[in-house]
């Protein structure tokens, strides 16, 4: 076995997946070293969420190898933080913000119990997300942006080595979005992050690597997106207005 496999946070080798007779992922190859911030962009229906779910072990690919920290993803729980795409959570669900975040610790518990250390971790995660004052409010009473921050806290509360974010800013307003990306920027370099987004401008100002996905994956070991790759995955020329103007979103809202 190669030593590099053990060093990779995520390794995909020849992953193929068909759903309902249609190829969703084809020959996906990726070896993502630890500590790298990877952005994945691509058109809707291009398989971005599916790829995230394959990496998390939620879907088994038809063919190919998936490894997280050199092991099958379902053995890596407790080491992965996950923020699903606009989760359809019931607004009336009887759960407080604190309890919702506490669920992120389930992967670490011993003998089925959560203890004082878990509660302390939750308090810290809530504080760093700026949600301490809302901790005992019902989760459903929060605004969309606050909910996303709470769900990010839930993903981070286990101290994961790998963070997978699927369209984390879909449906939240721009100031909340800027705050969210600042939170991510603070994590950059400390853990491996995979951010799925359709917002090409923001992504290229944040990430170390960028990949374009439309059934096939084109990965670059730099944050530069090649226009020909975009054209390849989107099937038409894409105007990269924001490219070369890094931190555009963050900066604009700081001035207010």
């Amino acid at each position: 076995m190669k030593t590099s496999a053990a060093e990779s946070a995520v390794e995909l080798d020849g992953v193929h997946l068909r759903l309902d007779g249609k190829a969703v992922l084809s020959d996906i190859r990726l070896a993502l070293p630890r500590g790298v911030f990877l952005g994945i962009i691509g058109p809707n229906g291009g398989g971005k969420s599916t790829l995230a779910r394959v990496m998390l072990g939620l879907i088994k690919p038809d063919r190919g190898k998936v490894a997280v920290f050199g092991r099958p993803p379902e053995e890596a729980f407790g080491r992965i933080g996950y923020l699903p795409q606009a989760p359809e959570l019931d607004r009336r669900f009887p759960i407080s913000v604190r309890e919702a975040v506490l669920l992120g610790r389930l992967g670490l518990r011993r003998r089925g119990r959560l203890g004082r250390a878990d509660r302390r971790a939750v308090a810290e995660a809530l504080a760093s997300s700026g949600l301490s004052d809302l901790a005992d409010r019902p989760f459903g009473s929060l605004s969309r942006g606050q909910q996303q921050r709470a769900l990010l806290a839930r993903a981070l509360v286990s101290g994961p080595e790998l963070l997978v974010l699927d369209e984390p800013t879909a449906g939240i307003d721009t100031p909340a979005e800027a705050g969210f990306y600042e939170l991510l920027n603070g994590l950059k370099g400390r853990i491996t992050i995979i951010l799925i987004s359709h917002d090409i401008g923001v992504i290229s100002s944040l990430v170390d690597w960028i990949a374009c996905l439309n059934v096939r994956l084109f990965c670059h070991e730099s944050p530069e997106i090649l226009p020909e790759d975009l054209q390849r995955v989107y099937g038409c020329p894409v105007d990269m207005i924001a490219h070369g103007v890094p931190h555009r979103v963050v900066a604009r809202h700081r001035q207010r």
Binding site: R53, L56, G57, L58, E74, F77, G78, I80, Y82, P84, P87, L89, F93, I95, E99, A100, L103, G104, R105, L106, G107, R154, S158
Partner: peptide, 14 residues
Amino acid sequence: LALCFDEEFARVVG
């Protein structure tokens, strides 16, 4: 609680 609130997340945390 995890199953009822968010089943997919529950699976990811084991």
